[in-house]
Computed example of a mutant assay.
Amino acid sequence: MLLQERARTLYTQLLHELNRFPAGGKFYGVRELVSRFQVSRRVVDLTLRQLAGDRLLEHRELCGFYVRSFRKRRHVVFYYNDWVNEELREIARDLKDEFDKLDCDYEFGSVPYDYRSDLVPQLESSPADVLIVCPPSRPITPQEIVFAAKSSKPVIFLGRNLVDASLHCTFRKYEFGMSLLVDYLKEKGHRKLAILSAEAPVGGNRIEAEAFVEYAAARECGVVRIPCTAEVGNYTPAIAHDALFRHLELHGADFTALFVISEYAAQGALLALSEHGLRVPEEVSVVGSGSALCAGYMHPPLTTVGVNQQESMAALAREIHRMWDRFDGGERIALFSIPKITERANVCTITKFNCPKHKENRI
C-alpha cells in the first residue's frame, strides 16, 4: 500500500518534469530518479511503467525511457492589432525565437485581431493555454478587464501597467524614458524642442507625450506641439509627413530637435524636413519613440528612445515558463522595462559654430 502511494506521488511529480523535455527526448534514468526524488528503485520502476502504460513515455530496450512525441504541447498565442506595424512583427518573431530556445515543447502562434471590436469574444474562443495580448490603441474596456481577471487561461497584456487590477502585464517606465530623452537633448545643446505625436493619444502614447512636455518645461526647454490628427490604428508615415509639412509651411523650423511618436511614422517627418531643405541632423535633430529595427535603416539612421524588445520578450518567455504550473496560485506576471536611448546618426550637438541661423536656440 505504501509503495502505491509513493508511486502516485512520484507520478504527479514526473508529470511536471515531462514538460522539461522535448518530444522524443530521453527521460531521466532510473538511478537519477532514485537520487533526485529520494525514493526506492521499486517506486521508480512502478512509476515509469505507469507513465509508459499511459503512453507518456516509451521504453526502448537497453536505452531507457523516452518522451513520446505526441504528448500535449504547451500552446501560447500572441494576439496583435491587425494593422501594419513593424514593431509588432518583431515582437512576434522575438517571442517565437525565445519559446523555441526553452527546453520544453512549446507551440507558439501569432493571431491578428480587429482592434476596433471587443476583444473578449476573440479571446474566449482561443484554443491556447496562455494568451499574450498587445492591447488596441484605445483604453481597455471594463469587460475586457473582467474577462482577463476571471479567465481560466492566463491573459498577459503587453505595454500596459495593470498591476493595480491584479492582471498579468508587462510595461515600460515611460516617464523615465522621457526624462532621459529631454536630458539627452539638453546636453546636446537643444533648448527649443518639438513633439509630433502621430499615434492616437491613449495608453503609453499619451503618457509619453505628456511626460515629454512636462520634463521639457522642468528643464527650462521650450516645446512646440505640432498638431497631428492621428486615428486609432492608422499612424503611417504619411500622417507625420503631412502634419510636419503644414507646420513648416506656416511657422518654419521653430525648433532644433523633433521628437516623433512613433519611430515608424518618423520616416514621414524626415521626408517633410528634406522637402523644406532642412538637413538632418545639421539643422534639425530627430528622435523617434520605439525600438523597431526599421529605425536603423532610415536615412539618416534614426535615434530612438525605447526598450530592448528582444530582451523584454526573452524575460517574458522565461517568466511564463517558470510559472507554467503555478498560474493558479495567485502569483501575477508584472514585468517592467527601463527605456534607453539608442543613439544613431540624426542627433547632433549644437555649438556656437554650428547653431542653425534660421532659428534662435535660446528661450
Rank of each mutant, 00 (worst) to 15 (best):
M1T: 13
L2T: 14
T9E: 15
T9P: 00
L10Y: 06
Y11L: 06
T12E: 15
P22T: 12
Y28I: 00
Y28W: 07
V34C: 08
F37C: 03
Q38F: 03
S40D: 12
D45T: 10
L46F: 04
Q50S: 07
Q50W: 05
D54R: 01
R60N: 01
R68Y: 00
Y79E: 07
Y80F: 14
V84F: 09
E86F: 14
L88A: 11
R89Y: 11
E90I: 03
R93K: 13
D94P: 00
L95M: 11
D97R: 10
F99M: 12
D100H: 08
D103M: 14
E107M: 13
F108Q: 10
G109Q: 09
V111E: 15
V111S: 13
R116M: 13
L119K: 01
V120P: 07
Q122G: 02
D129A: 08
D129S: 11
V130F: 02
L131E: 11
P142V: 05
Q143Y: 05
K150M: 12
S151Q: 03
S152I: 07
G159L: 12
G159P: 00
G159W: 10
D164G: 00
A165C: 09
S179R: 14
L185C: 04
E187M: 07
K188H: 12
G189F: 06
S197W: 03
A200T: 02
G203H: 04
G204N: 12
E208C: 14
E208Q: 15
E208Y: 14
A209P: 06
E210D: 15
F212Y: 12
V223M: 12
R225L: 14
I226R: 05
A230M: 06
E231W: 09
T236Q: 14
T236L: 11
A240G: 14
H241Q: 12
I261M: 12
A266I: 03
A266H: 02
L270D: 05
A272Q: 05
E283N: 02
V284W: 01
P300T: 10
T304F: 04
G306W: 04
A314H: 13
L316K: 03
A317C: 10
R318E: 09
R318Q: 09
E319R: 13
H321A: 08
R332H: 09
R332E: 08
A334W: 03
E343D: 04
V347W: 02
T351L: 05
K352M: 13
F353H: 14
N354M: 01
P356S: 04
E360V: 13
E360R: 04
R362M: 11
R362D: 15
